[in-house]
């Protein structure tokens, strides 16, 4: 199966099971290389539908302090592109869910775009989210990714005009990544669910593609609301905050606890229908 097909299958399975999809994000190599591998195992064991794996980058314009600090820790311990791909390969070998890389464009450019695409295929990764490449600049990446079946999901922000949002949704592989609010990643600022509801409805009226909600999804309650309104919840900074200051088994246990809360949240409550409005 190609990367895009693996993502499609992951979303189809969640839908068939009548639940939302869960996509945790981890920064490769944080808090240290061996714990990083443990955390990915936890994510696979918790039944994550897709895993987003960040290539550490020192100047992450789309990320808030939590992920920026995680990247600094990982870089300080030498985690680069190859080490990140090795972690992705480990998830695949362990029979885990598809892994999407999350990376800024500069490490890709220095690696070489074609070589990077080959390396993703070799590591069994499903594709990459490249947050600082808008669709206008995506030509070269697409040319390398499309023939290899690698996904390039696109982000839609609250500031994206409606017509542009539909074009982005149309061009997005695997799923559409709807950013929950203005600003950068981080658990401190609340998602804007009223906006999300409106935007997801507009996308669904025109484009038949799963929609994932990310940025600011920090709790079970947020995740529940996200999968009520869309197809998937993406959780990053809150997981990193959960293991902050710990490593090894302690970090894994803390991540396990939050993943369990998120897992419960993605399943429909017994009394409620899929599209019921639950106001909390």
């Amino acid at each position: 199966m190609t990367g895009i097909e693996r993502l499609d299958a992951a979303f189809a399975r969640a839908r068939a099971e009548g639940r939302g999809a869960l996509i945790p994000y981890f920064c490769a190599g944080d808090p240290d290389p061996s714990t990083s591998a443990l955390l990915l195992e936890e994510a696979a064991r918790a039944g994550s539908d897709v895993i987003e794996l960040g290539i550490p980058y020192g100047d992450p314009l789309a990320d808030g302090p939590t992920i920026a600090a995680a990247a600094q820790r990982a870089l300080a311990q030498g985690t680069g592109v190859d080490a990140t791909l090795a972690l992705a390969d480990g998830v695949r070998r362990g029979g885990g869910p598809p892994v999407l890389l999350f990376t800024y464009v500069n490490p890709i450019l220095q690696y070489g775009i074609e070589g990077f695409a080959d390396a993703l295929v070799a590591a069994g990764a499903a594709g990459a989210i490249v947050p600082d490449v808008p669709i206008e600049e995506m030509g070269e990446l697409r040319t390398a990714f499309a023939p290899r079946g690698l996904a390039l999901p696109l982000l839609i922000a609250p500031s994206t005009p409606p017509a542009r949002a539909l074009a982005l949704a149309e061009a997005s592989d695997g799923f559409v990544y709807v950013v929950s609010r203005l600003g950068v990643t981080g658990a401190k600022r609340e998602p804007d669910f009223a906006w999300i509801e409106e935007r997801v409805a507009a996308i669904r009226a025109h484009v038949d593609r799963p929609v994932a909600i990310g940025f600011g999804i920090a709790t079970g309650a947020h995740a529940r609301r996200a999968v009520e309104l869309a197809d998937a919840a993406i959780v990053g900074s809150a997981l990193i905050d959960a293991y902050a200051g710990t490593a090894g088994e302690e970090a894994a246990a803390r991540v396990r606890t939050l993943l369990a809360e998120l897992d419960a949240a993605r399943r429909p409550a017994p009394r409620s229908e899929g599209h019921d409005r639950v106001s909390r």
Partner: peptide, 12 residues
């Protein structure tokens, strides 16, 4: 040159 920014800034 170009415009390599997160989508949130594109419209800005």
């Amino acid at each position: 040159g170009g415009r390599f920014v997160p989508e949130v800034l594109y419209e800005a």
